[in-house]
Amino acid sequence: MKLYTKLFLAALTLLFFSTATTTVFADAKSDYEFQYSRYRQNYIEYSILKKDFLANPTLDNQQKAVLAAKQTLSSRDLSKASFAAYLLDLCQEKQTNYTPIKPLLDSLRSAKAFFLSEAEKSKTIVTPANLTSFTEDYLINVVPHNRSFRTGIVACKISQLVRIQAQSKNALDVILPKLATPLSTPLQTRIDDLQLLGNKINDTIDTFTDKLYTEEEISNIDNEYYFTGKIETIKKIQTLQLKWIDGLIDIDLNYAHS
């Protein structure tokens, strides 16, 4: 009897921990929000202590400022790592397996690893000189990882568009067997038009993605207008997708339901 009780308790504990682990890892967004709020708090504290130190550079104030800077560095890089994880989560939840965006997702993974490593490295800072050295190295190495956020966001949007394309294709595959054969000429024309439009949308997405890797685009990543042109392209693709789905719904209502 005791054995069964122990087994039951062990099973309950295992279930609790497995559920808890899933919940923690499931919500990358809340993790990022938590880390970012910590960073903001630490940054305010660091700013105040740095000001005190600059106004009154005693050893005590220096130690306080260095400690605050260390905490801020750690929370900053943990925030960045969790933001990269959040973006990866967003891109991967679509499960598109669209290989052209794979390098952008790899950049996000690399950024996540870099920021986690920097957060760990910042723990070794003891003196203001250590802090300066750390920051100088950081400023040199961080650029591509910061950029990965911008390209990663575009990759997530592409992932969403590709997923819609996959769902649209599935929808057409569902409808086709429901249509009475032989297909009438007007219906065949509509289906051909849909397939043509679908291919055109796919091509537009491919071209849009390929363009992200061009030298011109890479040199513009830090530009404040980097996203502007992309918004236009995404809107254009969305309009085409709406036109496509309207055509499919029309066929569904007028031919597949009769």
Partner: peptide, 12 residues
């Protein structure tokens, strides 16, 4: 999502 702002240049 919106990219948060960070201070990369933390020095004393």
């Amino acid at each position: 999502p919106f990219i948060p702002t960070f201070d990369d240049n933390l020095k004393l």
